[in-house]
Design a protein around this nucleic acid. Sequence first.
DNA 1: GCATACTGTAATAAATTATATTACAAATAT
DNA 2: ATATTTGTAATATAATTTATTACAGTATGC
Lengths: 135, 135
Amino acid sequence: MLSGKFAITIHILTLLTKFPNDFLSSEFIAGSINLNPVLVRKEIANLKAHHIVESKEGKNGGTRLAKNATDITLKEIFQMTFDTINLGYAKNQPHPDCPVGKKINENLSGLYADLNEKVSLELKNITLEDFSNQF
Amino acid sequence: MLSGKFAITIHILTLLTKFPNDFLSSEFIAGSINLNPVLVRKEIANLKAHHIVESKEGKNGGTRLAKNATDITLKEIFQMTFDTINLGYAKNQPHPDCPVGKKINENLSGLYADLNEKVSLELKNITLEDFSNQF
DNA sequence: GCATACTGTAATAAATTATATTACAAATAT
DNA sequence: ATATTTGTAATATAATTTATTACAGTATGC
């Protein structure tokens, strides 16, 4: 899955916030991000599934916000584009007979869950409107 | 660079903490992580550069902690294995003539710096000793 | 001093993941 | 009708991560 998911999604949403009365095409959005339009449409599909935007098919179609930018927090966007804050895991299954190997992933998960909470707390206080106002 | 860097490094350090009197070989450590020994040695090189561990070459050589586990915080480990908390950037340079494209990366960086601070604050309070005691 | 068991590091290969492209059916405005 | 756009699948390319091979250098202990 797209690793720039969060960044791409927030870029899309910022554009939609800046043009609240227009249906923006994936082509137009892709031009600003400099990304393939198909990938933009994929992220829009995700946003639609979460009822954050709505699209219109056909000529002059496109996408716009489905709710007010003041009612969307970065926490929501984070949650729909990122599992959790995560400093990574070693790729292979660690050795199950080693006391450390046996529990390392569990303990890392615990740590990451902790970090995730701090980050979520922070993101909950920033609305899409706040973020967009910086532009 | 290794994306499991943090996890691998903390795994290595936990092992060293559990066997504080031994020089552990990269082969032994690699067995617990289930990772190629060369990659273990690479992470150890990084740890050595930060004076957290010391190694002995030659027969019966290996690596051990160079300071007490109570004096190493997860923040240090985080900093030496991860640049910053980071929810990602779109891969390509965004369009410079678009007001959003022009500033998106700057604004994302600002946000990430903010998150980074929260995470660092949390990690500063956890020592390697604390982490190791969970095993 | 010689065999052995390590570290250190470079070079290359293989695997995985991320992004881009192509293609086309379905929808809708004019 | 035609043009434009979404939606989505299939496939290709590029980038990144991890693994492997190779070997020089170093300490240990016989």
